[in-house]
């Protein structure tokens, strides 16, 4: 299991309804079905991935996320996942809002462009970053909307999205103390647990605390 998936699965309640936007080969959903008894549906467009899902008993709908999610009822899922797909969407903000309309909560993971390696690539080499977790060249990348941890925090604040929990990992280890201290600098993959919070005044909006699980009750 990928490090980000290992964290994601902890935030998913046993027996809940899970919608995975861009579910890939369905491995995570198959695991969640087996180990947590979730009722899962995945959306995917790649034919090979779709066939994998069908062969492993994961319900999968061929659907392009860029064409919206209007076929899903509001509140029809407990958790909506968007793993490593945000940066490839035409309209990431609209999709995050749609996620939180359909799901009671949402989990978003994305490659953190604010990671020190990315910064170093730009600073020292003057080149767009290419790395293990962002392996594409600028001209052939499906990733058209990169953002940093700090950018996403701003999006959540401005979009009235409540951050239940936030963490970052690198491609090998889950966050160590240093990553907790400087997530936007050290984290390679950012993981957010969100909910479409009630209307709140800007004043009461607290800066999300790192891995702040107590916020979930609020």
């Amino acid at each position: 299991m990928r490090p980000d998936q290992e964290i994601i699965q902890r935030w998913i309640e046993p027996g809940s309804r899970v919608l995975d936007l861009g579910c890939g080969d369905g491995a995570l959903l198959a695991w969640l079905q087996r180990e947590k008894g979730v009722h899962a549906i995945g959306l995917e467009i790649d034919p090979v991935n779709i066939e994998h899902c069908l062969g492993s008993g994961v319900a999968v709908i061929q659907q392009n996320l860029n064409q919206g999610l209007s076929n899903f009822e509001s509140g029809s899922f407990d958790t909506v996942l968007l793993a490593q797909t945000l940066q490839a969407l035409d309209n990431p903000v609209e999709l995050v809002q749609e996620m939180l309309r359909i799901g009671k909560n949402g989990i978003v993971t994305f490659p953190n462009f604010g990671n020190w390696k990315s910064r170093l690539d730009l600073l020292l080499r003057g080149r767009m970053p290419v790395s293990e977790f962002m392996p594409h060249q600028w001209y052939d990348t499906p990733n058209i909307h990169f953002c940093t941890v700090r950018d996403f925090d701003v999006l959540c604040r401005d979009g009235n999205i409540r951050v239940l929990a936030r963490t970052v990992v690198n491609s090998h280890h889950e966050g160590r103390w240093a990553m907790k201290a400087w997530p936007n600098f050290l984290g390679e993959v950012a993981i957010y647990h969100l909910t479409g919070g009630e209307a709140r005044s800007a004043k009461s909006q607290k800066k999300p605390r790192f891995e702040d699980r107590t916020a979930r009750q609020g």
Partner: peptide, 19 residues
């Protein structure tokens, strides 16, 4: 078929769809 998918989702059913 997408119409059917939408109604099945609304009914909370396990549905797979390929085009």
């Amino acid at each position: 078929s997408r119409e059917l998918v939408k109604q099945l989702l609304k009914a909370d059913k396990q549905v797979s769809y390929l085009e």
